[in-house]
Simulated assay, not measured.
Amino acid sequence: MKLSCWIIYNGFLPGNKFRDYAEMIQEAAIAHGHEATLYTNSDIVSFLDQEINIISLKNDLLPDYIVYTDKDIYLAKQLELLHIPVFNCAKAIDISDDKIKTYQMLAAKQIPIPRTVFAPKTFGLHVHFDDLFFQSIIEQFGFPLIMKEAFGSFGEQVYFVSNVVELKEQVEKIADRPFMFQQFIETSYGVDLRLQVVGDEVITAMKRTSNTDFRANVTSGGKMETYIPNDAEKALAIRASKAIGADFAGVDLLFGENNERIVCEVNSNAHIRNLYDCTGVNVAPDIIQYIEKRLGEREQ
């Protein structure tokens, strides 16, 4: 029986990288003999009443599975409520999208992360923290330290803080949003690893290096090179992916003291084009093959 799938991406975000990712998945699905259709999150309209229903503007036939490359968690959950297998699942995407939730899950599984303190919830109000609060942060981390907003991609919404003046100024700027304070890993300044996990395997990896920024993200000027991870790095990345419930993820590792590895982020919707350009490995076929295996297990 020929499988059908939808690949859903966000149609509102600028640039073509989001559609490109979806197209890479589509090409791999078609190569495996699947019927694969691209949709944006705005192509599908959800209707809720006593019976959960969903109507696509283009196709009323529901697919056998969905590869969900977006962060529109409400739609992902709605599709799951219709009993359609969604990869990654809504819960994993939700955790990955919120860095505070991610670190909570990683810490709960005793996975090494930078020491982290998340700020109190302010309900969107632009509040002012007192000196006692700032003193407690300084005592915990010293300088420099890192501040991160809970929501952000491509290394954005991450701030390097050198002194108390910068600390107070940065808190003033983002106090109406969820954010955290984090230990600065000096031994990983401008360098990190990206390992692409699919199921129980690390498919490929790259090392990113920047000479001009504390962040190694390519969008921040980082350069890429192929990296061969060791067994410990692979095991750590797989543990991190499973900690958030992801079927596949891009896991970013930092270089800690004594050459240890520390998990920086787990990206449930990691774009795979840069990895392909760097390593020559297209992860999309591995994702489709993994999904076929999972669907077969469901059948059994």
Rank of each mutant, 00 (worst) to 15 (best):
L57K: 14
L48A: 09
Q196Y: 15
K234S: 08
A205W: 08
S220I: 05
L75H: 09
S136L: 06
G245Q: 07
T122S: 11
I44D: 08
L125G: 00
Q196A: 05
A150F: 01
G152K: 08
A22F: 06
R294D: 07
K293V: 13
Y68A: 00
L145V: 05
N41S: 14
V158N: 05
K234I: 02
Q140V: 02
G199T: 10
E80A: 05
E233D: 04
V161E: 05
V117C: 06
L295N: 11
F181N: 02
L81S: 06
E156L: 11
A150E: 01
T204P: 00
I30Y: 03
H83Q: 09
S268D: 06
V165D: 13
I30K: 13
T69D: 04
Q135F: 03
Y276T: 10
W6I: 06
I203P: 02
E265Y: 06
I44C: 07
T122Q: 12
L57D: 09
I30H: 04
M224S: 09
F181P: 00
R261A: 09
F123R: 10
R298D: 07
T69N: 06
T187Y: 07
L236G: 05
N41A: 08
E233G: 04
L75F: 11
T204D: 13
I185W: 09
H128I: 14
E166G: 14
L132S: 14
Q26C: 11
S136K: 15
K17D: 15
N274M: 10
A150M: 01
E225V: 06
F154K: 15
E80I: 06
D231H: 12
M180H: 03
G280V: 10
M206Y: 14
N163V: 02
D20N: 13
V263G: 05
L195A: 05
A92C: 06
A270C: 15
F129T: 01
K58F: 12
S4I: 08
A22S: 11
V202R: 01
D49N: 12
G124C: 01
A284D: 01
Y103M: 13
K99D: 02
L61N: 08
T187P: 00
V251C: 05
Q110L: 09
D277K: 13
V197F: 01
D72N: 15
D70W: 07
F118V: 06
F181R: 02
V164S: 14
